[in-house]
Design a binder for these strands. Sequence first.
DNA 1: GGGTAACAAG
DNA 2: TTCACACCATCTC
DNA 3: GATGGTGTGTCTCTTGTTACCCAC
Length: 628
Amino acid sequence: MQAAPLDNPRYYLANFDTLIDWVCQCHADLLTEAERATVDAITRLPDASRALLVRLLMRKGDHFERSQLHYPEIGAIEAACQPLITPLADSATPDGLCRHNADLSLDEMLALVTLPRLRAAFAELPRSTPKRRMHDAISELLGDVTPRPLPAWLNDPAADTLSVGLGELSRRLSLMFFGNLRQNLSDFVLSELGLLRCETVALSPASRAFTHRWEVDRYLALEQLREDWQQASERLDRTANAELERHWQRIVAALDATASAAANELHSEPSATHQLTDAHATGGRAIDDRANAWLAQRRDRLRFSLARDAERQGWHQAAARQYACLEDSAYAPRAMPRRVRALELSGDISAAHALASERLARAEITLDEQLALERALPRLCRGLGLPAPRRARAPTTPQIALTVPDLATSAADGIHGVERAAAHALATPEAPVFYVENGLIPALFTLLCWEVLFAPLPGAFFHAFHTGPADLYRPDFVSRRQAAFEACFARLKDESYRTVIRERHQQKQGIQAPFVHWELLSEELLNHALDCIPPAHLEACFRHLLANPREHRAGLPDLIQFFPEHSSDRYRLIEVKAPTDRLQDNQRQWLALFARHAIPALECRVEWLSATEASADECSRHKAPPAS
DNA sequence: GGGTAACAAG
DNA sequence: TTCACACCATCTC
DNA sequence: GATGGTGTGTCTCTTGTTACCCAC
Ligand SMILES: [Mn+2]
Ligand SMILES: [Mn+2]
């Protein structure tokens, strides 16, 4: 499987055929007979017709005016259209793959027609009517806005249209191939252009994105709910809160339907030769957390997002109820503090206090949840008239002050951003500073564990355009690779880790990988890091990253400074804070880890030096390395 | 006619 | 389909 | 000073074309 060369005028058709072939080879049993009939019809189309179909599929929307379609490599559109609009009995598309002059809603028509043509077609309207007013204006003018073909809308017999009629099938095929809805056929092109370089991983038909049709159904259903909500909130936000809330309730109810226990059908997957039942085809089956933990996680993620939106709308009780559903999910460390806050704002401070206390009393509490709850607890105690718990939280992270020229002055010198200004002020020839944020330590992890991350485990890689294992953020990612990760970390006990990291840096340069930003990872930076950071420190950071890759991939300090000439404390991590800024939760988590492992980190509080007081003396006050 | 965003495409 | 920061309001000491 | 909340600029590959809107 690989992208077609771009000197092929129909490169996109070749890519599409590759996708379809792979899906049919690996996922044929996840399609209904009707869908397979449609796919077969597509593959049997004349090349010109299939090329036109692909061109349309890759464009936005389903409806196109035929006279606007110009593709030299396809030729006559008229001829290419005919096979597309031929009815297909017993397929998922009985009316054909495309439709000729399909009925268009008013909005669909407006999306197709430019303003000058609208003004010509509806000459009764004021000439100055902007397009955004056209929907209402035409509605008032005509009264009846029943969907109708474009020639009827415009009273122009020449305005023929062609509409893609594949419905959800094209999304479904793309989802089954890529395992997500974010990637599409353009990834083939990016790959061929060299802009998307992916690691080569052995693929086998046994390794595929989905193993059951209901998994695809649920994925699509969840995504549909997310889009429905997004569309509703964009349309109704700040204008129709009651209606918006009804939409929200409907979405949540649909989510609950997928969460209810109904695992009894799990092992009744019909064979590939049998027609699927309606229940299967419509996706009316619940997600079983044990059967598919990652779909359950996607559902929980959507629930969390919906609850956050409910909070923003002020629906605190409703939000709290949704957060409560996440108590046993992977999102509990984020959801429980939000639940506390929602309870608090809904007026039930005692419930908020009780929940916060109960969560904080747990032995297995994660650091991020603990930090968030500890911040809320004193406020809740005050609200209940209880004595505030002791806050013996001495600042475990040392701070330094630094005065630098203000941003306008720095920008004039080509230094943009407070982090770069601080880096410039702190750096010396003996102690270089790099602005790395999340680009160094997680990248070193990836380089050390490259083989583990790109190991061809089932379900991890299933096409040629992966930027990392598909299950990286799924609950069992580490446990499936535990022994292999330990073997990598064992290299930190001898000296071999340096060789491995340097080799990967050389060999894999430019290949997309999780946590790696190649443009940041210069040879010089790498050498300093391997020279100055003790492997025990790296191991502590790597294990923290693995403890929760999604939550811990960010929050590392802005700068790293190396002291190659020193014999101890040969580096330090520096979080730069402008006067208007303060530590964020994920930054505090990392700083807590650094304190726990005696990793040298500090907070650098920046103050502005006005241009009139500027002097080299002031700027260089705090360059001294940390005292040891 | 300028400024901007969306879109198509390699 | 992100991340970090700037800015604002509020509360407390 | 601490905290919670919200908005913003930066990213997603780059480039050329078109459509829209607004100010003149
Ligand atoms: Mn930063
Ligand atoms: Mn910072």
